[in-house]
Design a protein around this nucleic acid. Structure first.
Lengths: 127, 127
DNA sequence: CTTGACCTTACAGTAACTGGAAGCTTTATC
DNA sequence: GATAAAGCTTCCAGTTACTGTAAGGTCAAG
């Protein structure tokens, strides 16, 4: 399989697939002309990576998860630890964004939004 | 005022203040020895920037907001438009993170987290 | 007069790609 | 068989908003 087939099947841009190779997440074979050749295994790995990225895992987490995935003697505790840590970070981020949202909503609502210069939003920022 | 005073008063790292100058958000004066000298106005601008960044506005938004702040004849509608757009983006992000959270929570809960290799998390990623 | 704190610039690195240029290979068309 | 279009390659730069580090000038204290 050439890269565009894999791109199409996994939904990952070819650029991204090349990038994943560059950082050592997978190593496709090469045909004589230098083109990358992907196997079913590579396809699975890329799908795995795509899914993990969709769930917000960092590339380094992905590397870890991929290693665990391939380690038949892994402990599920190790996998869960990675996921739990990530979940914690997501919760933190949501909290931060919700705080921003609350403030912004309040400010937007209190701003007339007309052609006059008076603006509670700017007043808040400047306080 | 030297940079460390400003840093202390605004809570912004000196590095960040220098960076803001570099990208043209403010232009402190210089004393003979080359040290930056900040006025009260600079201090206000930096506080403004710090607050805007806390609310998640991008640097480019900050630039726009700062310009509006200094434009006495601004229309509050322009300010509100920036804030509303930003709010929309935050809402999008929250939605995305909440989706991740829901999936991750489910997966974490369904994983035994012991020394056995069976793991629903990996199964999901590999599906 | 030296030590330490503070200031300067300049360059590199971060995360995870993305865009674009220059150039080879393969495939389709005439 | 020539040529053009599509697809592949590598390499380099740019993105966001800083942060770290190095090398070196300046200032206040003892």
């Amino acid at each position: 399989m050439n890269i565009s087939d894999v791109s199409q099947k996994t939904g990952l841009p070819a650029k991204t697939i090349r990038y994943y190779e560059e950082i050592g997440l997978l190593t496709p074979n090469r045909s004589e002309n230098g083109y990358r050749v992907f196997s079913e295994t590579h396809l699975h790995k890329l799908a795995f990576l795509g899914r993990a990225r969709t769930l917000g895992f960092s590339i380094e987490d992905c590397r870890t998860l991929l290693a665990l995935y391939e380690d038949e003697s892994r402990a599920s505790a190790d996998v869960r630890a990675v996921a739990e840590e990530h979940l914690k970070q997501i919760n933190d981020k949501i909290s931060q964004f919700e705080e921003m949202r609350a403030t912004l909503q309040h400010l937007v609502r209190s701003c007339a939004g007309d052609d006059r210069p008076d603006c509670p939003i700017l007043q808040d920022l400047a306080r």
